[in-house]
Amino acid sequence: MPSAAPRARRGTTQARRVGQHEAGRPGAVWALPAALYFVLFALLPLGFAVWLSFTSYNGIRLAPPRFIGLENWTRLVADPVVLGSVGTTLTLVVVAVATQVPLGLLTGVWAAGPQRFRAVIGALYFIPLLMSTAAVSVLWSSLIDPNFGLPNALPFLFGDGNLLGDKGSALGVVAFIYLWGATPLYTLIFQGAARTIPLSLYQAAQLDGAGIVRQFFSITLPQLRNTIITVSILIVVGTFTAFDIILILTRGGPDNGTAILPFLMYEQAFVSFDLGYGSAIAVVLVVLAAVVSTVMVKITGYADMAGTQEGI
């Protein structure tokens, strides 16, 4: 370091202050390796997916993608399976948000309470998070096995027990397993957020004679507004990972009843080896994800936060 020599005698105070401001600050070079890496393995493929959606490609190196224009896209917009899949995906998203947000909120706020045992139980809630989605799916597929699982042991609860034989109940099972595996994360997030609500708000409400329910709706809920939005978006994006559950449990069946878009994409690309058509489905997913992420950045103000804290 050549300029490590003393800061002394470097001119006026003003000049020193300017130098000081820039000294030790990293240049753009510091961000380059990671940025290039991310571009190569995440953004470039994103663009490439768009190109592939205009090609015919069966995944064999000897037969590279061949441009076929809009063929995949005209097929896609008229494909009843894709249309049904969009419906299935949206249904799963809505069911997931409608069940996981309230459950995570209630358990999280409850676990944030001051009593010690609540914190302990909160830690136990955490356990499913230690399992991969694949592990959760195999666990539950064993538990709901019609012959060797709970339905056989508790026939009064499960009827004929073939939960995966019917479209509606199969999607319900997928939604439940997704809930079981994912909600602990949201419990944890709500627990953390609820602890940051100033206690004085509750004390004031108590002096005004507000009961617990009233306090929940008038203080807790409004204070957690941003967390609720963030969690909802995480759930929406996380629905793509329900792919693991579906591949292991139902393979999209019965009769495509659980074939959400990511699964349909996988099936087209890696089971039917129509990677061009699979890419078209992927692009539909990209658009959905991009809309969600833009909304996420806008609403939660991550970017603004970064801006105001710059250079502090």
Binding site: A42, F48, A49, L52, P65, A289, S293
Partner: peptide
């Protein structure tokens, strides 16, 4: 900013080009 957008793009949507790459 690009990374923030990337935050919500799940790996699922680029598996086909990744396979190619």
């Amino acid at each position: 900013r690009v990374l923030l957008i990337g935050l919500a793009v799940p790996a699922q949507v680029v598996v086909i080009p990744l396979y190619f790459l």
